[in-house]
Amino acid sequence: MGLPVHWRADYAGWLIDQYHQGHGAHVVTLNAEMAMQADQNPALRQVILNAELVIPDGAGVVLYFRTKGQHIQRAPGIELAAAVLNYLSSQETVFMYGGVPGVAHRAALYWQHQVAGLKVLGTQHGYLGPNDQPEFLHQLEQLQPSVILVGMGVPRQELWIRDHRYLCPNSIWIGVGGSFDIWAGVKTRAPEWMCDNHLEWLYRLYKEPWRWRRMLALPHFAWRSLTYSAR
Rank of each mutant, 00 (worst) to 15 (best):
M1K: 11
P4C: 07
V5Y: 13
R8D: 14
R8M: 14
A9D: 14
Y11Q: 08
W14C: 13
L15R: 08
I16A: 10
D17F: 09
D17R: 14
H20C: 11
G22C: 09
G22Y: 08
A25Y: 04
V28Y: 03
L30R: 00
N31A: 05
A32R: 04
A35K: 04
D39H: 14
D39C: 11
Q40T: 11
N41C: 12
R45F: 08
R45G: 15
Q46N: 11
Q46W: 04
Q46C: 11
I48H: 05
E52N: 10
G58D: 00
A59C: 02
G60P: 00
V62D: 07
V62N: 05
L63Q: 12
Y64E: 08
T67M: 13
G69P: 09
Q73G: 14
G77S: 05
A82W: 09
A83R: 10
V84E: 10
L85A: 02
N86A: 15
S89Y: 09
S89T: 14
S89W: 07
Q91Y: 07
E92W: 06
F95A: 02
F95L: 10
Y97K: 01
Y97D: 02
G98F: 03
V100H: 14
G102H: 01
A104D: 01
W111P: 01
H113M: 12
A116T: 13
A116R: 08
G117Y: 05
L118M: 05
L121M: 14
Q124N: 04
G126P: 04
E135Y: 08
F136E: 04
F136N: 02
L143C: 12
P145K: 01
P145I: 07
V147K: 01
G151E: 02
G153K: 09
V154F: 12
P155G: 09
W160V: 09
I161L: 09
R162Q: 15
D163M: 08
H164Y: 13
P169R: 12
I172T: 08
G175M: 04
S179V: 03
F180R: 03
I182Q: 06
W183H: 01
W183L: 03
G185W: 01
K187P: 03
K187F: 11
R189E: 07
W193M: 03
M194E: 06
M194A: 09
D196G: 07
W201E: 06
Y203Q: 07
R204N: 06
R204A: 05
R204V: 06
W210D: 15
L216H: 12
A217K: 11
L218W: 07
P219H: 08
H220E: 14
A222L: 10
A222Q: 06
W223G: 10
R224V: 08
T227R: 13
Y228F: 12
R231F: 15
R231E: 14
